[in-house]
């Protein structure tokens, strides 16, 4: 029986946009993610996918519900503790790559190690190893604007892997890539899942990506759908 990494029940979240306009982004969503999962949250746009991912990634807090991350009750955590848990247990991959433009590929990857509490030496060694794994050995000293979309996303994946996270959360990881590169990135993620038992939870509305996943969680209007 694999370990449960995410166990969230009945998560609710609403945003008060104006006095009279309240958006109920989540109306009671439950989700479980086991170690080694390769899952996708799917659903039409506005169904609360990104909000759910943000809450699971400790970037936002739910209004109510329960959430255990790797056995820790994160509902009771202060933001300072959340920062530390986020650095050590979670990895993020975003749609727009989101690398720091003034830093080289190597420095971008090393940055995550800094927050994860690694020494300078450990950071450099680990970042170089990961970039090598991403076949980017010859691109380490390039700035993001000198890299292609696929290369940038591979740097972002290396950065997400830096602190050996329990789970990597990906928000539309192929959203800004052409279909050939998308496939390449998905294959890379699948390989990491297969060979390193790395757990992934991604948000997508790309059915090709969803079909590549072992498990899908469907959302509709802020609740689980089927």
């Amino acid at each position: 029986m694999p370990k449960t990494l995410i166990h969230a029940t009945n998560l609710k979240k609403c945003y008060q946009l104006t006095k009279t306009n309240t958006v109920h982004a989540l109306r009671g969503v439950s989700i479980d993610v086991q170690e080694g999962d390769f899952s996708a949250i799917i659903g039409p746009s506005g169904c609360g996918k990104s909000t759910l991912l943000h809450i699971l990634g400790l970037l936002d807090t739910p209004d109510s519900g329960a959430y255990m991350l790797d056995g820790i009750d994160v509902m009771k955590m202060k933001s300072k503790e959340a920062n530390s848990v986020r650095a050590k247990k979670l990895g993020f991959i975003f749609q727009g790559f989101n690398l720091i433009p003034t830093q080289t590929a190597l420095e971008n990857v090393m940055q995550a190690g800094k927050y994860g509490g690694m020494t300078m030496k450990q950071r450099k060694a680990r970042a170089m190893e990961l970039l090598k794994l991403m076949s980017l050995s010859d691109r380490m000293d390039h700035k993001p604007n000198e890299l292609s979309g696929g290369q940038q996303q591979r740097v972002a994946i290396a950065r997400a892997l830096m602190n050996k996270p329990a789970i990597i959360l990906a928000d539309e990881p192929t959203g800004e890539l052409d279909s050939a590169t998308s496939l390449e990135i998905i294959e890379l993620l699948k390989k990491l899942n297969r060979e390193n038992n790395q757990t992934f939870l991604m948000v997508t509305h790309n059915m090709e990506v969803a079909n590549a996943c072992k498990k899908t969680i469907k959302l509709k209007d802020g609740v689980n759908a089927g």
């Binding site: 970037l59 530390s84 986020r86 050590k88 993020f92 989101n98 995550a112 994860g116 602190n163």
Partner: peptide
Amino acid sequence: KREIGIKKAIGASNRS
């Protein structure tokens, strides 16, 4: 702002 968001997402503390 973007950059601050990224840094926080990858675990930067407020202090850092």
